[in-house]
Design a protein around this nucleic acid. Structure first.
Length: 265
DNA sequence: ATGGTAGTGCAACTA
């Protein structure tokens, strides 16, 4: 079972790339962020035409998240109860697997803009709420994967030029602590669970030829709960879509769970 | 220190 996350930066613009990538990558579940479209403009028919279902939370211009899956999602929840938010940044869904249900969450964590801004305060509050919500969600659904754009590069190894970025938004100590606080619930950053090449990133600024220079950050992550970790066999970044014409500034991260069908006694 | 690009939606905001 392959699950992926991709901040598409407008699903309207990126839809052909997403449909093509679903066909070539063979992922079973795809979490999307930054749909940037009103809820009623979501292209459900296009996904259904290639054998996928979808649940989503859209809004005009900004944010927006979705879970695309071969199987229909159940118990869909949008945003976090107890944390009123104008932004559509989280959607959770229960999906079947050969070994029982899995709880999948697509998150678009706030960017924060700058460390001294109101948006930074909102970002840290959002992460604190996410931790509290995941604590209870994990108790109800131990088999959980939280995929998305966290807008945090967890360590200097996830930054192309750590000295230049030191203390900046996306790498500041408080943001990294907020990310680590999620891991402390029992999640593992799947990418770091396996040996990886150096300088592997998931986002490159559109400006200053950042992708050509590999001047990127790793801010898109798949967090796997301890109950599922034994079945996690791979996590990779697919740089292919970032090379497309008119690409998103993010590229997909794929996590593989090896869940063989349990034989009957 | 600033600006560089992309998307939405048509000015200015977000990233």
């Amino acid at each position: 079972m392959k699950l992926a996350t991709w901040n598409v930066n407008s699903l309207k613009v990126r839809l052909p790339q997403v449909l093509e990538w679903l066909g070539t990558s063979g992922v079973d579940v795809l979490c999307l962020q930054e749909l940037k479209m009103p809820h009623d403009k979501f292209p459900l028919a296009e996904f259904e035409a290639i054998g996928y279902q979808a649940c989503w939370a859209g809004q005009k211009t900004y944010n927006g998240v979705a879970v695309i899956s071969r199987d229909p999602a159940r118990s869909v929840q949008i945003n976090m109860p107890g944390f009123p938010d104008d932004h559509q940044r989280l959607i959770a869904a229960t999906l079947p697997s050969p070994q029982g249900d899995i709880r999948v969450v697509s998150v678009y964590c706030p960017n924060g803009q700058a460390v001294d801004s109101d948006k930074y305060t909102y970002k840290l509050a959002w992460f604190a709420a996410l931790r509290e919500w995941l604590l209870t969600e994990l108790a109800a659904h131990p088999r959980m994967v939280v995929l998305g754009d966290y807008n945090v590069a967890p360590a200097d190894a996830d930054v192309h030029d750590p000295a230049k970025w030191e203390g900046d938004i996306l790498v500041s100590p408080s943001e990294r602590e907020a990310f680590e606080a999620l891991l402390s619930l029992g999640f593992t950053d799947a990418f770091r669970h396996f040996p990886q090449e150096e300088k592997m990133f998931s986002w490159w600024d559109y400006r200053r030829m950042a992708f050509r220079r590999n001047a990127g950050l790793r801010i898109d992550h798949a967090l796997v709960s301890s109950a599922l970790l034994p079945f996690c066999t791979a996590c990779e970044i697919d740089k292919g879509p970032r090379r497309n014409e008119q690409p998103s500034d993010h590229t997909p991260v794929i996590v593989t769970l090896d869940l063989p069908v349990e034989k009957e006694a």
